[in-house]
Amino acid sequence: MTGDIVQMGAYIGAGLACMGMGGSAIGVGNVAGNFLAGALRNPSAAAGQTATLFIGIAFAEALGIFSFLVALLLMFAV
């Protein structure tokens, strides 16, 4: 019974952790959207900034991956 409660907590925690992925999705969308808005205003400068775009996306995405990792840890490793 205690094991079941621990399990339940772990699964609920995993589900909660998945909300972080939504946050990172918003973040990535923000980065890409703002990049697009800026790129449409000044298309000539856009090509030089794609590296910055990918770095920004990577940082935003990393946090979502962290929450996914937490979910996985809760499900499989706790």
């Binding site: 990577a58 995405e61 990393a62 991956i65 962290f66 996914f68 990792l69 996985l72």
Partner: peptide, 16 residues
């Protein structure tokens, strides 16, 4: 930490 977990996490997540 973030450098390594980003790569491993992305690959693992997609495949899983």
């Amino acid at each position: 930490v973030s450098h390594s977990i980003r790569l491993a996490g992305n690959m693992m997540a997609g495949h899983a």
